[in-house]
C-alpha cells in the first residue's frame, strides 16, 4: 500500500493530532480508495488545483472545484467523512479542460483531497483544509 504524505504525518504525529486527523479505520478507507484509484503508483504534487472555502457555513453544501490540466480523471476524497469517497470525474475528448465544480457534504472540519490521474499514467494530489462551522441556530 502506498503510504501517502498525509498518512505518514498521521502515523508520526501521535496522540496530539489525533483529534484533527481521521481515525485509523477512516485512514484505512482513504488509503483503500486511493489504492483503488492509483493502483499503488507514486503520487506527486503540482499541476492540480483544488478550490474550497476556508470556512464552510454549512457542511451540507460545500462548493468545491478541481482542475488538473491534462488529467484523464480526478478523484475527490473527504478525509473526515464516514465514507471518504466523494466522486471521480472522468474527462472525455470533448471536455474543454480537465476541471469541474460540484457541491459536497463534509461531516465536520477536515481535509479535502483531490488526486488526478494524468494522461501519462502518473498521479498528483492536493489537499485543502475546510473548517465546517456549527451554526448557532438549529431552526
Amino acid at each position: 500500500m502506498e503510504l501517502t504524505r498525509r498518512g505518514a504525518l498521521a502515523l508520526g504525529a501521535g496522540a496530539a493530532l489525533s483529534l484533527v486527523l481521521p481515525a485509523a479505520s477512516a485512514r484505512a478507507a482513504i488509503e483503500d480508495s486511493i489504492a483503488n484509484f492509483t493502483g499503488g503508483a507514486d503520487i506527486g504534487e503540482g499541476g492540480i488545483t483544488l478550490t474550497t472555502p476556508e470556512i464552510a457555513e454549512n457542511g451540507n453544501t460545500v462548493p468545491i472545484s478541481v482542475a488538473a490540466p491534462g488529467a484523464v480523471a480526478i478523484m475527490v476524497l473527504a478525509s473526515g467523512n464516514p465514507n471518504p469517497d466523494v466522486g471521480i470525474f472522468r474527462f472525455g475528448p470533448l471536455a474543454a479542460n480537465q476541471a469541474a465544480s460540484t457541491r459536497i457534504r463534509l461531516n465536520g472540519t477536515q481535509d479535502v483531497i483531490a488526486i488526478a490521474e494524468m494522461a501519462d499514467g502518473s498521479f498528483v494530489q492536493v489537499a485543502n483544509n475546510v473548517k465546517v462551522t456549527i451554526g448557532g441556530c438549529g431552526g
Binding site: 466522486g87 470525474f89 472522468r90 474527462f91 472525455g92 470533448l94 471536455a95 474543454a96 465544480s101
Partner: peptide
C-alpha cells in the same frame, strides 16, 4: 454528459455529493 456520442464528462458519484446534485464543467463544441 455526451455530445454527438462523444464523452464530455463521466462522473462516479458517491453519497458525499450534496442533495440536489450540481455539476459545472466546460465542453468544446466542434
Amino acid at each position: 454528459c455526451e455530445f454527438n456520442g462523444e464523452t464530455v464528462i463521466d462522473v462516479a458519484v458517491e453519497p458525499a455529493v450534496s442533495t440536489n446534485p450540481y455539476f459545472e464543467f466546460e465542453a468544446v463544441v466542434p
